[in-house]
Design a protein around this nucleic acid. Structure first.
Length: 177
DNA sequence: TAAGTGATCTCT
DNA sequence: GAGATCACTTAA
């Protein structure tokens, strides 16, 4: 018997290598409750940021007030303002004290991390919250669908400053079609 | 192609 | 406290 609880993606799913989690998130659902109405969107594009060695990861220079949440346990949201006007949404993954997160870059019919958060009405009020129906923002598994999708891997976007190696590793996952 | 926009971080 | 930086979007 599948209850709603069993479909929710929580720390058990997220506390694994960030690349594995990122790839498996494609095709699943991001869920948002706004004024009592629940919306579900298919995840089509994500990027992985993997630990302090990853020069593109916000935590690569060590712990700061902003990125402390990434050092915490998996399953929390990391949301920050980019270029002064765009909120970017990440989910923390991996074990405690290992800073890794996945950036949500696109959902069905909406491409771009800044547009995604605008579409879902996400801002810093969700930052550091746990992904769960109680916080109004969570992830659900789309069982049955994920077997038929095709995933493409490409280098990440907009991180040329990270150096030749880290700017070229294929840590971006996009749903084909 | 370029400019808008403001929190955060790294120096003084 | 000041200046540089930045995981983007939009309008031309």
């Amino acid at each position: 018997m599948n209850t709603d609880q069993e479909k929710i993606i929580g720390p058990e799913f997220l506390n694994r290598p960030v690349l594995t989690v990122a790839e498996e998130l494609i095709g699943n659902h991001i869920c948002r409750k706004i004024a009592g109405e629940v919306e579900r969107h298919i995840i089509t594009e994500v990027e992985a940021y993997d630990g302090q060695e990853d020069k593109a990861c916000h935590a690569h220079k060590g712990r700061t007030p902003r990125n402390t949440i990434m050092f915490g346990p998996a399953g929390n949201w990391y949301i920050y303002l980019c270029y002064g006007m765009h909120w970017l949404l990440n989910i923390v993954t991996g074990p405690e004290n290992y800073p890794a997160a996945i950036l949500f870059r696109g959902i069905k019919n909406t491409t771009g991390p800044g547009r995604l958060t605008k579409r879902l009405q996400i801002d810093k009020s969700q930052n550091e919250k746990t992904a769960s129906p109680q916080s109004g923002l969570w992830l659900e598994g789309a069982t049955g669908q994920s077997q038929s999708i095709q995933i493409e891997r490409t280098p990440r976007i907009g991180i040329g400053y990270a150096g030749k190696h880290w700017a070229n590793v294929p840590y971006r996952f996009v749903m084909k079609g």
